[in-house]
Write a protein that binds this DNA or RNA. Structure first.
Lengths: 106, 106
DNA sequence: TTAATAGTTCATAAAGTTATAAACTATTAA
DNA sequence: TTAATAGTTTATAACTTTATGAACTATTAA
């Protein structure tokens, strides 16, 4: 892996976490797989939009998909995704807390 | 935290990981703080560009900054950032491995 | 006080991402 | 064979992000 190429690939995978709908999907898939239409029911919105976001995450190696009959089942590619996502949620919460504490001191 | 707002904030923090230069900076800051000009020396590019990226990460709560004399020192806001970033790197490596194995089978 | 150092901020053009709707494909059911 | 279900793909307009260079600010040194 030469020079900065690794940073590009790494950023590309991280980029797949950077959208509210995609975070919502990762949250939903923490424990078990869901099929497309069940995910759509939870998240709402257009099916074409969800399909595109799922496709991005699958291509980047964040999700796995398996087809069963007419249904496409999506799941996290590994527990690492769930764990990384939880850590970033904690980073957010810590930062909201710090911000709130600053406000209270005024 | 009402409805989908949490997903937006969470995605916003994750988005701060989604750029090659920002990944490179997070990599550099794993063990210790660095000042702006040392980061610039490692990453290369324009100072204005680096400054903007550092500013984004600081605003999103990923980095901390402290000023000492003429120098601005940057560090990770917490070990959680380093850990999340490492996990995502592993997700990348696993996915590259799977891709490579598929190629070899052909 | 003047100049140098160490950055930040601003304006903007180029590139990339997202939401929407329509068209398409694959599988199952009638 | 025809229709229904379950999605995917494609085109595109609106929006967001990024890189660049110039202008600016704050601190230290001469």
């Amino acid at each position: 892996m030469t020079g900065k190429k690794i940073f590009e690939l790494h950023a590309d995978v991280c980029k797949a976490l950077g959208h509210p709908l995609r975070i919502e999907v990762i949250d939903l898939l923490q424990e078990k797989e869901f099929c497309f239409s069940d995910i759509l029911e939870v998240t709402g919105g257009l099916k074409s939009n969800l399909s595109q976001h799922l496709s991005v995450m699958t291509k980047k190696g964040i999700l796995k998909m398996r087809r069963e009959g007419q249904c496409n089942y999506y799941s996290l590619s590994s527990k690492k995704v769930a764990q990384a996502c939880r850590l970033m949620r904690e980073v957010l919460m810590d930062s909201l807390k710090i911000h709130q504490d600053l406000l209270e001191k005024m």
